[in-house]
């Protein structure tokens, strides 16, 4: 339900400018919808942006769906609301990378490039 979009739009454009193909789904997505689009678009990675705490509930659901369907697509997540403790938990769960408010543009691009290469 989160409506904050500044970060998501900015990161999408940043990655696009770095030469990646971006399918931006906008607001109001569900894990099922994201998995479906990822299959249709043959996604190399899934990026989530959050400015609410809903990620705590949706990330495990998304990872489980990917796992159930045997899809090996790395999931990355970014947002200022993710605390260091949450970040560790997310990584333990299987999230490939977590980006906080201090991540630089270069770090972000490099990290995604490494993940999909």
């Amino acid at each position: 339900m989160d409506q904050h979009e500044v970060g998501a739009v900015a990161v999408s454009r940043l990655l696009r400018d770095a030469g990646m193909e971006i399918i931006y789904l906008g607001r109001f997505n569900t894990p099922a919808g994201i998995v479906k689009t990822s299959i249709e678009e043959d996604a190399d990675a899934i990026g989530l942006s959050c400015h609410s705490w809903e990620y705590l509930h949706y990330v495990p659901e998304l990872l489980k769906m990917l796992n159930d369907q045997r899809l090996n697509i790395p999931v990355v997540i970014g947002g200022s609301v993710i605390t260091p403790g949450d970040s560790d938990k997310l990584k333990d769960m299987g999230v490939a990378a977590v980006f906080g408010p201090s991540t630089t543009n270069d770090e972000l691009v490099e990290s995604i490039q490494q993940l999909v290469s």
Binding site: D2, Q3, S52
Partner: peptide
Amino acid sequence: DAPSMALLDPDHPLGVNAVGTQ
């Protein structure tokens, strides 16, 4: 909260994880 602003009741399946948090 976000579901109420989007005119969804708290029992809407899309809103449940955001009830009362924002």
